[in-house]
């Protein structure tokens, strides 16, 4: 197999490549953030009007620790009652599985093509 000679990259093209990568990275982080699609917020399903430690489901031992931390039933109300919502749809789950598997398959397939070329040049090409 003929030896592959890599072209030298110009300065401008090098800089462009770096900027391209940085912009993509920032995009992946900030786009979901700006669109408000990110994160799992906790919500309080059933607020207590006049919370006491008992109505918040706390035993005396638990209440004592909260008081040691400087909380009252009122100030601990949201902290104690807020819960995550773990419900999801089968469709979303399937979509995630497909995306992850597709990603790895794509990766392994392209890698394999490139890898064969590398091995051929390294071990047979000389």
């Amino acid at each position: 197999m003929a030896r592959y000679i890599a072209p030298t990259q110009s300065k401008a093209s090098q800089i462009f490549d770096v900027i391209f990568l940085v912009v993509l990275t920032l995009g992946a982080l900030f786009v979901p953030l700006k669109m408000g699609l990110s994160g799992a917020a906790k919500t309080v399903a059933a607020p207590e009007a006049n919370p006491t430690w008992e109505s918040l489901g706390q035993t005396p031992a638990q209440a004592a620790q909260y008081e040691a931390l400087g909380y009252t039933p009122e100030s601990a109300h949201d902290l104690i009652l807020a819960r995550f919502d773990y419900s999801f749809t089968t469709g979303a789950l399937l979509a995630m599985i497909v995306v992850i598997i597709a990603y790895y398959v794509l990766m392994l397939k392209f890698s394999e093509t490139e890898y064969r070329e590398v091995i051929a040049e390294k071990f047979d090409g000389k």
Binding site: S38, M96, L106, F110
Partner: peptide, 24 residues
């Protein structure tokens, strides 16, 4: 763990993998 991340941060997971597909 992928499933666990999906439960809270599914959108980021997809955004992240989308990013890696594009750069690949």
């Amino acid at each position: 763990t992928f499933f666990a991340v999906f439960l809270g941060y599914g959108t980021q997971l997809i955004a992240m993998i989308g990013f890696y597909i594009v750069v690949s």
